[in-house]
Amino acid sequence: MRRLLWPLLVLAVLLIVNVLFTPSFLSIQLRDGHLYGSLIDILRFGAPLILVSLGMTLVIATGGIDLSVGSVVAISGALACLQISQDASVFGAVASALALAVALGAWNGFLVAGVGIQPIIATLILMVAGRGLAQLITDGQIITINNPSYKLIGGGYWLTVPFGILLVLAVLAVTAFLTRRLALGMLIESVGGNAEASRLAGIRARGIIVVVYAFAALCAGIAGLMISSNVSSADGNNAGLWIELDAILAVVIGGTSLSGGRFSLGGTVLGALVIQTLTTTIYSVGVPPETTLLFKALVVTVVCLIQSPAFRQKAFTRRPRTTAPAPRAEEKAEVIV
């Protein structure tokens, strides 16, 4: 709980800043059977980032990294929209898009665990090639669709709540059950802590790594469906652009170490909400668009520094003054002589 204190404080500060600029920021209204408000918008627009961050958390917990999730987001949305535009069923389009996403994630896991390529290199390959694949699927165009059933995934409501929020809660609940109620979470942490020791203990580290990368791609695929559904179109070039960096930041802000080992799903969700709230704050405060990324980077840097125990100890702990030692009796005698 202690490692969640600073992200909670930062989130509270961001909310207070928004209230100062917009007094009705925290208000939630029910109109036409739907919940509306800035807080609902933060959750709705932050849902894809939360999904990608959940998958990234498990990958980082094994000591790896996945830079290809942004490309998987684009590929998933592009394939689903292409098939729907060709009069395919929504269920078939969604299933094929998610199946391709899982296959791409398993390929990443095979390169890392089977071939032995460094995770940053293995996923960088798909990060670059994946954008080309998404452009190939869309033929370099923006595919526009008009399907109410598909619109529900990212832009619809169910039981007065945006469907994307409910989808995130469902994925979070399943992930928490698999990693905290079953032994999977402990196995992931053991592989991230020491893969060789885990192998000697009888744990199939390679299989776990493949499963983790496949799960991260599955989360990215669902996020791609949500993003393309929300705008009723697929853009292979810009969909999910740089979302992998925001996901890594969310994981770090949430307290998960990049060196692997222990992870925190709740901290990751909190970190993603901090980033999405920061994005909302930037727009509400009126930061010029050309300096948005710089402002965001500065704030995230400050958050990470404040969260670091070593930095807090150096910055906020007073060092004791060093006083000169008292002269010995012999030295006093020499001075008197």
Rank of each mutant, 00 (worst) to 15 (best):
V112G: 03
Q135I: 09
I253C: 01
L172F: 15
L159V: 12
S284R: 14
I227S: 04
A315D: 13
N108R: 02
T281S: 14
A113G: 12
V90C: 05
F177M: 13
A247S: 08
L98Q: 11
G224N: 09
L258P: 06
T323R: 13
W107E: 03
A12I: 01
V337Y: 14
G109H: 06
N238Y: 04
R3F: 08
G140V: 09
P309M: 02
I209T: 15
S76P: 07
A95K: 08
T317W: 07
T323G: 07
N146C: 00
L79A: 09
K314R: 15
T292R: 15
A272F: 04
L26H: 04
L9S: 11
T144Q: 13
C219Y: 01
D87G: 09
S38D: 12
S96Q: 15
G130I: 03
I120Y: 13
P162Y: 01
I306R: 01
R328W: 06
L30Y: 02
S76V: 10
A95I: 14
A195Y: 07
L200H: 08
C81K: 07
L11G: 06
L167R: 04
T62I: 04
L273Y: 00
I222P: 07
F215N: 00
I42D: 03
A247W: 00
A97V: 13
T179A: 00
L278N: 05
F110H: 09
L184I: 10
T144P: 00
A176Y: 08
S24W: 08
G255V: 03
A297M: 08
A234Q: 02
S149W: 14
L67R: 02
I16A: 15
L35R: 03
L172M: 12
G185M: 03
A329M: 12
V94Q: 09
L67V: 01
Q29G: 06
L278P: 09
V174C: 13
F295A: 14
R206G: 15
V168C: 06
S229I: 02
P320R: 09
V161W: 03
P162A: 07
L20D: 05
L187S: 08
I117F: 09
S257L: 00
C304S: 14
A201F: 04
M127P: 09
A223L: 05
S228M: 04
T179I: 00
S38K: 11
T144V: 12
M1D: 12
W158A: 12
L51Y: 04
R318Q: 12
L225G: 06
L51N: 06
Q276W: 06
A205Y: 10
F295Q: 01
S149Q: 15
A234M: 04
A333V: 14
A214M: 04
L166A: 07
